[in-house]
Simulated scan of single mutants.
Amino acid sequence: MSDATEDRLLLAVDAPSLLHRNHHARHESGLLDAGGRPAWALHGMLRQILEAIDQFAPDAVLFGLDDRRTSVRETAYPAYKAGRAEKHPALVDQLERAAALLDALGMLTVTPDGLEADDVNASAATWAERHGWRCVLITSDRDAFAHISERTEVLRLITGGIAGSPLLNPARLYALYGIAAEHYLEYAALRGDASDNLPGVPGIGEKTAPVLLSQMGSMRAVWADIDHCAGATLVATIDSYCEENGLRRIGSTLLARLTAPGARERFEFNLSMMSGRTDLDLGLTPDVPGSPGLLPLDPDRVSRVVGHLGVPETTRLALRVLTEPPASVGLPH
């Protein structure tokens, strides 16, 4: 591992995201642990994290988990995530056992009161920035894109696993969405998020929102223009963009949608619901040898805990990846 602070890397993992994906991908395997309990999602999550650790050679690994008892977002908005299918009992069982498995392994888990793994990711990116570390967030959730920076990248898990998933930095995010990383949260609030049952601002979607933000700079500037000069600058700026690109003028239409009853309130509400907490105490103590989450881990613990899942090949991989000091590597680009 590197001694230089600027070369140290924190891997922050959205554990529920990985568990959900692996439950659906591996359910047919019917894998049971040594105690006869469902283990396919736990094994799939751990396998992917081992592959990621092998690839990135982090100095510390942090797992964020959802508080499954209470939710501040659901309290504020009872319809939050309404419409999602009821979780399979075997998935619920593995979600509830994940923290115990990871803690027993010697990893660091954080389950914030009333909050979600998304909030842990947000705080991990902030912690890395403050301490001069680099950070990779591993998740399938697009909300993490809001935390992309020169120090933080997002490995967005898609079909194909770790090796087949894109590693997004500011340039790659812009190439995909036409949005600067610092504006992604505003873009998402305009667009809405069907998976969380958060409707967007009517009439402003994935094509219009990037144009609005790229031309106006931020939604703060948009609202200020509407308040101070009835949106005249917005209309002129958007119409000028349309003319330069051979498009039909949409300035007045866009202004009408933004000033429609409830539009600003919808944007502000979405922004509040989507914003991750950046001030959580993660319990990271990288200067204290043997602290949870620091690599390498104890071989006996790794052999016992991973061995309980009943997949010898994964146990061998875990012993190699988790207990042997990795060679110093650069973050892939």
Rank of each mutant, 00 (worst) to 15 (best):
G290C: 10
P78Q: 07
P312D: 07
R21A: 08
G251H: 03
L137W: 07
V222F: 06
P166W: 04
L254C: 11
R257W: 09
L319E: 07
A260Q: 14
D227C: 14
S29E: 15
P89C: 10
A60N: 01
L295P: 03
G114K: 09
G106C: 10
V201T: 05
P296A: 08
I158M: 02
A76R: 15
L137A: 07
T315G: 03
R37A: 14
R172I: 03
R301E: 12
V110N: 06
D196V: 02
L234H: 09
H20K: 10
L309W: 03
H183T: 09
D143W: 01
T259N: 01
G44W: 04
A39Y: 05
A175R: 13
M216I: 04
A100W: 11
A25M: 12
V61M: 02
P166H: 04
S272T: 14
A25I: 11
N197E: 08
T208P: 10
A76N: 13
A60Y: 00
F56G: 00
P325T: 10
P58S: 08
T139D: 02
S123W: 00
V306H: 00
P292A: 07
S2A: 15
N22W: 01
R191T: 08
A146T: 11
A34P: 12
D67L: 07
T253C: 00
T278G: 11
Y184I: 03
T75N: 05
R37C: 13
S165Q: 08
T152C: 09
L62P: 07
I148K: 00
S252A: 15
D54S: 01
T323A: 07
T237D: 05
P166T: 03
P299E: 04
R134C: 11
L309S: 04
W40A: 14
Y184R: 14
G217W: 01
I138H: 03
I49R: 03
E129M: 12
L297M: 14
T314W: 08
D196Q: 00
I238T: 10
L137N: 01
D225K: 13
I53R: 04
D66I: 06
R134M: 13
E324S: 10
L322S: 08
L282S: 12
A104K: 12
L18F: 02
D3P: 08
W133R: 05
Q94W: 06
A85K: 15
H228N: 15
F56P: 00
E28Y: 12
C229F: 02
D3V: 09
Y80E: 06
E86Q: 15
A82N: 06
R47K: 15
V120A: 04
I162A: 01
R257Y: 10
E206V: 12
Y174L: 03
L167Y: 08
Q55G: 02
D118H: 08
M107D: 04
Q215G: 09
G293D: 07
Q48I: 05
